[in-house]
Nucleic acid binder design. Structure first.
Length: 258
DNA sequence: AGAGTTGTTCAAGC
DNA sequence: AGCTTGAACAACTC
């Protein structure tokens, strides 16, 4: 479900819903009962996105940490609400709004004094207010792993998932298998700028939009990609090649990406 | 019904 | 040490 833009967007939305409010929290199937009990009645101080991770700060000594993983998602809404679904892990609500967290990869509390350590475990976040691209660029230039793998490695850079990686490498005409150390600082800086701009579009629209086709204004916004999930390259009309890299499907155009 | 999927972590092997 | 693979987890869609 999410790449970095989803989580940053959720951080904004959820912050608007519950920051500054006392919340009630329940774990309908009891799979996060202890955590829910600790949050229940606490004042939400704000939310924080770190790449694909989402933190909710409360006036207690621990912070709620979520990662949606592959299949997780949120449902937000106004009161009165229907009962949480069977798959709902945690419901957070104020008198006026609620957030259901469904199918997360990670739903846990981390002690506040461990937050800095947590933040330093990951590479610079493309969507941070003032990120440090040099850290990511240096890590890439030190590695002989393929750039397609490095872009997905959140320890190197935070926010890119399988769709953005395919799209960005195609946009820049880069062979996904190029070793990181073969890329110049200039190339990587341009790549960073492109990725950041694309993710910002993602936050603004709620969709992964990497092509410049005119959007149909009425239709619900959905993903608009160049090669992800496609068979034919829009640039050269050649076949898009699907392969497996670290268990994920990699798309690329062998003619355009060399 | 089963496979695939916008993801990560861990363990083990090279 | 850096790099790679495979399994496990989760909830949805086709």
């Amino acid at each position: 479900m999410p790449e970095g833009h989803t989580i940053h967007r959720a951080a904004q939305d959820h912050g608007a819903l519950i920051a500054g409010h006392r919340v009630s929290a329940v774990s309908p199937q009891g799979r996060f009962a202890d955590g829910a009990a600790l949050i229940d009645g606490a004042l939400c101080l704000g939310t924080e996105a770190l790449g694909k991770h989402l933190l909710y700060h409360f006036d207690v000594q621990q912070t709620l940490h979520l990662h949606l993983g592959l299949g997780g998602y949120f449902v937000t809404g106004a009161q009165p609400a229907s009962a949480p679904r069977d798959v709902t892990r945690l419901r957070i609500e104020t008198g006026r709004a609620l957030i259901d967290i469904i199918g997360p990869n990670t739903c846990e509390l981390i002690p506040n004094d461990a937050l800095d350590g947590f933040r330093h475990r990951y590479g610079p976040d493309l969507l941070a207010a003032d990120p440090d691209p040099d850290r990511a660029i240096a890590a890439i230039r030190k590695s002989r792993a393929p750039i397609a793998r490095l872009l997905m490695d959140q320890k190197v850079i935070s926010g890119i998932g399988n769709i953005y990686r395919a799209e960005i490498l195609w946009l820049r005409g880069l062979d996904p298998m190029t070793p990181g150390k073969n890329l110049s600082e200039t190339q990587l800086r341009a790549l960073w700028d492109d990725m950041r701009a694309l993710l910002q579009i993602g936050v603004a629209t709620g969709a992964i939009i990497t092509n410049s086709e005119t959007p149909s204004p009425k239709r619900e916004v959905r993903e608009r990609t160049n090669i992800f999930g496609k068979d034919i390259c829009p640039r050269c009309d050649g076949q898009i090649v699907k392969s497996q890299l670290s268990g994920r499907t990699l798309y690329h155009c062998p003619r355009c990406q060399t």
